[in-house]
């Protein structure tokens, strides 16, 4: 019903904006001012500061052995975790939408916990099961596995929450039509369902990757920040800030922003191909 209303020509005509022109003009001005002061200018300052050091300064900062190791670990772990999330996230969304069993509501609740839980608390939470007093005997604290673990925890909701609504809206008659035409369940999934989910999966994966690359709070207590072992890029940025080296901090930050941007674009590209192939 909502879509019907949305596509009516009268509703899509922007001619009604004039009724609010003055108010909305002032609103737009105020909003842009605040948004610039809070977000745009500070982020621009990061890039400007990075460029002030020049190409050689930028290069020597990011090729510093310890920094390079932290970037390698961060990007590798983020890629692996995002790839895992694509599978587990889609599987979880599938179970939440299509399966029915008592206690499912509780799972719904659990999915959102990592999003709302303070990251420092998340670190402490993971430490209780995977730290030195682990009831499972898994001593992952202060190893590079702790980085993977923390990333998995904090990025859990993204793919699930982007895929779930799309899966809910998916018309089951399309699947039934595919089945009536002789498609097996695997073929139906690959040719019909997956292409419809691809944009949502890609969006979730992009969020998940960006979040992982920038993660800091959950690692503070869990990873021990051991250089060449469990130190991530955010920690390197922080120590550059603390050593009064804003140029270095901005250089690493800019590199991370560029990597995130590249991954988001790449995912968009993959998503388009999958969606078309259907």
């Amino acid at each position: 019903m909502a879509e019907l209303i949305g596509t009516r020509p009268a509703a899509s005509r922007p001619a009604l904006a004039h009724n609010l022109t003055r108010t909305s003009g002032i609103g737009l001005g105020l909003t842009m001012l605040w948004f610039s002061l809070l977000v745009l200018l500070p982020l621009a300052a990061v890039i400007v500061t990075a460029s002030q050091a020049g190409w050689s300064g930028f290069w020597s900062t990011i090729t510093n052995d310890q920094t390079a190791a932290s970037i390698r670990l961060t990007v590798l772990a983020a890629v692996v975790v995002t790839a895992l999330n694509v599978f587990t996230g889609t599987a979880i969304a599938w179970v939440l939408v299509r399966d029915h069993f008592p206690g499912k509501g509780l799972l719904e609740l659990i999915i959102d916990v990592p999003f709302a839980l303070p990251t420092i608390v998340a670190g402490l939470v993971l430490l209780s099961l995977y730290g030195n007093e682990s009831p499972l005997g898994l001593h992952w604290a202060n190893t590079q596995w702790s980085v993977y673990l923390a990333f998995l925890f904090v990025t859990l909701p993204f793919v699930v929450r982007t895929v779930q609504p799309v899966l809910e809206e998916l018309e089951s008659d399309v699947e039934e039509a595919a089945a009536s035409l002789g498609a097996s369940r695997v073929t139906t999934f690959r040719r019909i369902i997956l292409p419809s989910l691809a944009p949502a999966i890609a969006a979730g994966a992009a969020l998940s990757f960006a979040r992982a690359v920038g993660e800091y709070g959950s690692l503070v207590l869990l990873s021990g920040n051991l250089p060449f072992e469990s130190e991530v890029s955010s920690v390197r940025i922080l120590s550059a800030i603390e050593h009064d080296n804003p140029g270095g901090a901005a250089s690493i930050a800019t590199l991370l922003l560029l990597i995130s941007l590249a991954v988001i674009l790449l995912l968009d590209l993959i998503q388009r191909r999958v969606a078309r192939r259907g």
Binding site: V46, Y216, S234, A253
Partner: peptide, 19 residues
């Protein structure tokens, strides 16, 4: 741009504000 804060590391946010 409004989604940008979700994709930026909190440490970078802090750095940006300090700068």
């Amino acid at each position: 741009f409004v989604d940008l804060p979700l994709a930026v590391s909190p440490i970078v946010v802090g750095l940006a504000l300090v700068l």
